[in-house]
Design a protein around this nucleic acid. Structure first.
Lengths: 219, 219
DNA sequence: GTCTATACTGCGATAGAC
DNA sequence: GTCTATCGCAGTATAGAC
């Protein structure tokens, strides 16, 4: 006999329910109804704690005091909820590392520093939704998964471009651009596995630390 | 209407079914029955492709031509199958980074290099089981999860010890030992997210690359 | 737009024949 | 030790009242 609903609050993820930052509700598209945005925020908590398959369509509306049927007023399926979440997360992170003020930075080292620190900060500050973005991709439909892949390619291109610029203008050593960019992305992404808000590190501190490491990688 | 059983072969993970290396069947404890070991190998594929909650107790025996009931001859529950997998993966990886021949390396840089490259190689070579070890921890029972945490702490200690040694004897700069060790672990762990055997990189090449990065981090 | 009730399906696990 | 059959329940999604 298995434990009943053991996954509802696992040892690994119990803390994540308290982890959602206050900004997260403001991430969602402005054209969405307020209740729809509350449901998305609830879904982030559920998916981050128990995964897509470990979350039921009762859990998501239940956490905001609504009945199971309420979910289907705003979303056609559980998968569509996941897609909305994952798409928003990827778009916001991408926007944050290719903001206009970064494009104009001529100094390669400074540009790389800003990109790496911003990417790291975003993943720390929004680590609950970022966790869903990294861990639950496999539950998307084929079409939705391909949409997300495209956003990820664009993010990768930002990193590769920043490294390439420094190699080209002689600021950096002649490193393996793809592999080095991949390592920098790994430092940001893997943070969603272990980061907690009650730890001793702020997103800004982590951003500076990872940016320092990134610059050491290209020297 | 949702797609029926969409998760059985997702866009993201479809390739993982072909990815299991030939060595993996030899990872399992020798005291296990041959059929039990086949079931574990099947479970690795299933969990890596669809996650623990996305895998049914019919999938696991089904992939080796057995009936649903056969699973319960060898394991008391699906969760116990996961635990057996995850425990074995963590133990083997830990053994590989604290092999006796590494303990005797007096040169801090050489010792760090071997630890980082071995950790990276292990995760590349066994990236399918390593993926389950990293992504499905939250589906373990509380007791089993704590057992795994202990193994992870020991692995972390190996990395921290190697960095600390070099800081103490002056080989390395006076870096933040915990954070730097964590970054090195991230480079190995995040590899399970993207590594595929048909890529252009061998586990050994990746091991050397990550070891080079690790040494740059402590200069 | 929200609810209660429920249709329908799939799941984890077990019984009992061979 | 393997099978077929099935129990009991949980899961996604919908119907229809209010």
């Amino acid at each position: 006999m298995a434990k009943p609903r053991q996954a509802r609050l696992t040892a690994a993820e119990v803390g994540l329910l308290q982890e959602l930052d206050d900004e997260s509700p403001n991430l969602w598209p402005a054209d969405l109804n307020e209740v729809a945005r509350k449901l998305l925020t609830s879904a982030v908590r559920c998916f981050a704690s128990n995964g897509f398959h470990g979350t039921t369509t009762r859990d998501i509306p239940g956490m905001v005091g609504l009945s199971p049927a309420a979910l289907y007023v705003y979303f056609p399926s559980k998968e569509q909820v996941l897609f909305e979440l994952v798409r928003t997360g990827h778009e916001k992170a991408l926007d944050y590392v290719r903001a206009p003020e970064i494009q104009h930075l001529g100094d390669a080292a400074e540009r790389l520093r800003v990109i790496v620190s911003r990417y790291t900060e975003w993943h720390a500050r929004h680590h609950v939704i970022a966790r869903v973005c990294q861990y639950d991709l496999a539950s998307l439909s084929v079409e939705h998964y391909n949409d997300i892949l495209e956003l990820r390619h664009q993010t990768n291109a930002v990193f590769r471009g920043a490294v390439q610029q420094g190699v080209d203008d002689g600021t950096f050593a002649t490193v393996d651009v793809n592999r080095v960019a991949r390592a920098m992305l790994s430092l940001g992404i893997d943070l969603v596995r272990w980061y907690r808000r009650d730890g001793s590190e702020t997103p800004e501190q982590l951003g500076r630390f990872n940016a320092d490491l990134a610059l050491k990688m290209v020297r």
